[in-house]
């Protein structure tokens, strides 16, 4: 490659133009030739004539040989808004891209904070039960001043006795839901203390609010005061 380039350097300039016309010039020399072509109108004319020779030999349409074609295209382009302007606008647009992720994070954080406030409002402790932990399930209610879309499902199920049985109020089929609730409450009794469970449920509510699922979820709190 280097040998080839050095050979090309020794060849006469006009011959290199001919080689350039055939896309057979090395990369470095081709770039240099582009520069020369843009600098020298005479060289450009010669290059155009080389192109015309090729067009005639390939029997390309006679109309294609007229240099007025290029002039007309350039005239039409001149009437277009300057390319540089479009380019700089794009660069300006690109410059604003870097802070987009931060805006996203800021929005997500705001939504999370609002959700947390919203959830904490509904996690007000219920009246203490004499014995055993209680599982609260809040039924949906429309918050004052809030739209219907942001209504939070709110229901409450209190474990009435010391047994670990839980009967969800809103369950469609008590038999099925009873089994699930039983299993859940058993797990809760064994693995979770009140603080951990409430923290988990609050996080869940945040996520649900962020994803736009809020109207469909029920906010469940584990009443720490019940014990």
């Amino acid at each position: 490659m280097e040998k080839e380039t050095s050979k090309q350097m020794k060849t006469p300039f006009q011959e290199r133009l001919s080689t350039f016309t055939d896309d057979e010039l090395g990369d470095f020399e081709a770039r240099r030739m582009v520069h020369e072509l843009l600098e020298s109108p005479e060289l450009r004319e010669k290059w155009t004539r080389y192109q015309v020779i090729g067009s005639i030999l390939r029997k390309e349409p006679i109309e294609a040989l007229d240099p007025a074609f290029t002039e007309t295209v350039m005239e039409r382009i001149e009437k277009q808004p300057a390319y540089v302007v479009a380019q700089s606008q794009k660069q300006a647009k690109r410059a604003t891209h870097w802070f987009k992720p931060f805006v996203g994070v800021a929005i997500a954080a705001s939504v999370a904070a609002l959700s947390l406030l919203f959830v904490s409002r509904y996690l007000v402790p219920v009246a203490p039960e004499p014995a055993g932990p209680s599982l609260t399930l809040q039924e949906p209610t429309v918050a004052p001043g809030a739209s219907a879309e942001s209504a939070v499902a709110q229901s409450e199920v209190t474990e009435a006795d010391k047994s670990t049985e839980v009967t969800p109020v809103s369950s469609p089929t008590p038999a099925q839901m009873g089994t699930m609730a039983s299993a859940t409450s058993q797990r809760a009794a064994v693995f979770l203390d009140d603080t951990v469970l409430n923290s988990f449920l609050a996080s869940h509510a945040e996520f649900a609010a962020h994803m736009g699922f809020l109207p469909q979820v029920r906010i469940v709190g584990f009443d720490s005061d019940a014990q």
């Binding site: 081709a30 770039r31 290059w47 294609a64 040989l65 295209v73 390319y83 380019q87």
Partner: peptide
């Protein structure tokens, strides 16, 4: 490399480089 070089120049705002591309491919 010729086309790449010319395209790059046009993208930087050099209209004369596009003139060469037109000459090259008009036929």
């Amino acid at each position: 490399v010729t086309d790449k070089e010319l395209v790059l120049r046009v993208q930087k705002g050099d209209k004369a480089a596009f003139d060469l591309l037109v000459q090259k491919y008009q036929a």
